[in-house]
């Protein structure tokens, strides 16, 4: 079955949301979703890094790893490429725009080892996407992650005054909410199935 890049893009946002259907990228999702403003910064950083690193990793995979039969090394190679890219981008942002650094750059080190970002690169291999498809898959996954964390931050903001059983405060209730959000997103899964 083949999909157009546009279908993959929307599929990655809604039906195959990397966070809510694969539960990847949980640690930063749980710890940074307390405020909408910081969530937006982190989410934007994730969109950017996912879209670009998925393409970079596609190029490295198809032009370096496959010709030399080194596919089995993709885990380590992908993470190295992601880490190097993130560092470089952080340096550039810090140099050129103070506002952008304060809003977005500061989150970059946080997502170097975000498993959702590695996950997207690995799914791209498993699902044999082309370069364009990979880009849209990365972009869509990023947007999906962004939406999920913004929604979570909004819900947590509303919950500030709520009476939550002592044992469930913090990560406990957040995981339960994430579970309910995942159920809601499952409603989309009949529309396009990209996994």
């Amino acid at each position: 079955m083949s999909f157009t890049p546009v279908a993959i893009f929307f599929g990655a946002i809604f039906t195959g949301n990397i966070l809510l259907s694969n539960y990847l990228g949980m640690c930063s999702f749980l710890s940074v979703s307390k405020e909408i403003k910081t969530s937006t910064g982190l989410g934007a950083a994730v969109i950017f890094v996912m879209a670009v690193t998925t393409m970079l990793n596609w190029i490295v995979y198809h032009y370096l790893l496959i010709p030399f039969h080194l596919e089995y090394l993709r885990f380590i190679v992908f993470i190295v490429v992601i880490a190097a890219f993130v560092q470089l981008v952080e340096m550039i942002i810090e140099r050129v725009s103070e506002g952008l650094y304060a809003a977005l750059g500061i989150f970059l080190p946080l997502i170097t080892v975000n498993c959702a970002i590695l996950g997207v690169s690995l799914f791209m291999v498993i699902r044999s996407y082309t370069l364009a498809e990979s880009f849209f898959f990365g972009l869509g996954s990023g947007v999906g992650w962004f939406l999920a964390i913004i929604a979570m931050a909004g819900i947590r903001k509303k919950m500030v005054g709520a009476k939550i059983p002592k044992g469930l405060e913090g990560p406990g209730i957040t995981l339960i909410i994430a579970g309910m959000m995942a159920l809601a997103f499952m409603g989309f899964s009949g529309m396009i199935n990209i996994s």
Binding site: V60, L64, F68, L70, L73, I76, V77, V80
Partner: peptide, 11 residues
């Protein structure tokens, strides 16, 4: 050796 070389070169 090729695999070691490639990875070393990339990093």
């Amino acid at each position: 050796l090729i695999s070691v070389g490639i990875i070393t070169a990339l990093t």
